[in-house]
Amino acid sequence: MDPKARILIAFLSICLLFLILNLIRRKRLKEEYALLWLITGVILVLVPLFSDYIDQVAHFFGVYYEPGLIFAIAILCLLVILFHYSVIISKLTEQNKVLIQDLALLRKKLEDLEAKLSNTN
């Protein structure tokens, strides 16, 4: 891989890592959700440093267009992150349902109590 390309990729990846760390520092991103992004960021920093080895690995697996393997790694990282989101969304949907139900039930209880109070007064 051309050194210029390596520097560019490493630079962008380091920017990404800084962005993630800064968001965590400002409490805009929870550590739990930052984990996969940090792993992705570190992998992307390492890719230009070890691109010669990656080329060898690519050849070993019969991938003759080397950047193809890098794309594959990046896409795999993104898939894992998206999948993680689907799991989180499912959990949030369930929690949301319970909250909606309990809120409605509490409102009903409150209405009944208020009606009872105004009857006794």
Binding site: K97, I100, Q101, L103, A104, R107, K108
Partner: peptide, 8 residues
């Protein structure tokens, strides 16, 4: 009547 605040 129980009113759900969102459609479930």
């Amino acid at each position: 009547v129980i009113n759900l605040p969102h459609n479930l």
